[in-house]
Design a protein around this nucleic acid. Structure first.
Length: 319
DNA sequence: AAGACGAAAGTGGTTGA
DNA sequence: TCAACAACTTTCGTCTT
């Protein structure tokens, strides 16, 4: 379903996605891309973070709706999320030439042999075959989890590296793919719960955890530890809370961090409690249950963090 | 009736010997 | 490898709005 037509439509408006780095100015992780200007912009303070964003959308301007539908880049943008990066040559099965004429038998036999070796060299190589299944699994997983394209690309790269290091051997492709997705999310400061990914993959939670640790140890990737602030945009969005409240929640967390209240605590719990407090302050009250559900934790934990922070930070909260 | 609160017991993961 | 430990979860009864 997700064909090229829908792809070219979404690039039309400002596309929200998350980049590797939070805003250097205010630390916000809500980052927008503006393909028409080629800029990456902070959604919070509006600063232009980068002006060298590469537009992978259609190449030409369009003056009518038919043109708009018809235009595209010459060839799809290359992507790591396909086993051949989308660059392979395909030899058609139909035995006709470009003019639609039937091929003479000798020519036809030649094409047949070419195609045979073409396919052998592509997918019948075990590495390529592995990648092909992995990338389709990656497709499925990322679309189910609603993971943006650039994170998916990172996951694909992580998977390729793991495959090069022969880490996939003896493990399931699904498991390693899921692990790559998990790591990619953390790299992009959009951490997803292990649980969340585990429910959408065939691999068990245990295997997923093992794969993650294995990649982590052998590949030398350093993953930033998830910060409570990283969760605010997503949870806030799930709870349909305003940007104002989200910003307030981040302030609360900053204060708590300054007092050393966050050490050793579950960052999702901190984020949830901060959102709960922000809701009270900003008059966008959400129940502890709602907040807890958004963060995939229990209301008891929300309560404990909430109590701690109100007490230690001397917050005046109207109930 | 729904939401908030707190106590007590249980659980999975980390740490240090 | 194992036990200790802190944080989190589950469960349940009570209080407040």
């Amino acid at each position: 379903m997700a064909g090229e037509a829908s792809g070219s439509k979404t690039t039309e408006e400002k596309e929200q996605s998350l980049t590797l780095e939070p805003c250097p100015e205010c630390g916000s992780t809500v980052i927008y891309r503006d393909p028409t200007r080629g800029e990456i912009i902070c959604g919070n303070c509006g600063i232009v973070i980068s002006e060298r964003y590469i537009d992978q959308g259609p190449e030409w301007r369009a003056f009518s709706s038919e043109e708009k539908e018809g235009r595209s880049r010459v060839g799809a943008p290359t992507t790591f999320a396909m086993h051949d990066k989308g660059l392979s040559t395909v030899i058609d099965r139909r035995d006709i030439d470009v003019y639609g004429n039937k091929l003479v038998p000798s020519r036809r036999a030649q094409i047949y042999r070419l195609r045979k070796w073409q396919i052998r060299s592509m997918v019948h190589n075990s590495v390529q075959r592995n990648l092909a299944t992995a990338m389709s699994e990656l497709d499925r997983l990322t679309s189910q989890l609603g993971i943006p394209r650039d994170i998916k690309e990172t996951a694909a790269i992580i998977y390729r590296k793991a495959l090069e290091r022969r880490l996939v051997r003896g493990r399931t492709i699904d498991g390693v793919t899921a692990a790559a997705v998990y790591l990619a999310c953390r790299l992009h400061h959009v951490p997803r719960a292990l649980e969340e990914i585990a429910t959408h993959t065939h691999a068990g939670r245990k295997e997923l955890g093992r794969s993650i640790r294995l990649i982590l140890h052998t590949s030398g990737i350093t993953i930033p530890r998830p910060k409570p602030q990283d969760f605010i945009p997503r949870f806030g969005e799930d709870l349909r809370m305003s940007v104002n409240s989200q910003r307030r929640a981040i302030e609360v967390i900053d204060q708590a961090q300054a007092m050393g209240l966050t050490a050793g605590k579950d960052p999702t719990g901190m984020a949830a409690a901060a959102l709960y407090i922000a809701g009270l302050i900003e008059g966008e009250r959400r129940t502890q249950q709602e907040v807890a559900a958004a963060a995939h934790i229990t209301e008891v934990t929300v309560r404990n963090r909430y109590k701690e922070m109100v007490q230690r930070l001397n917050l005046k909260v109207e109930v």
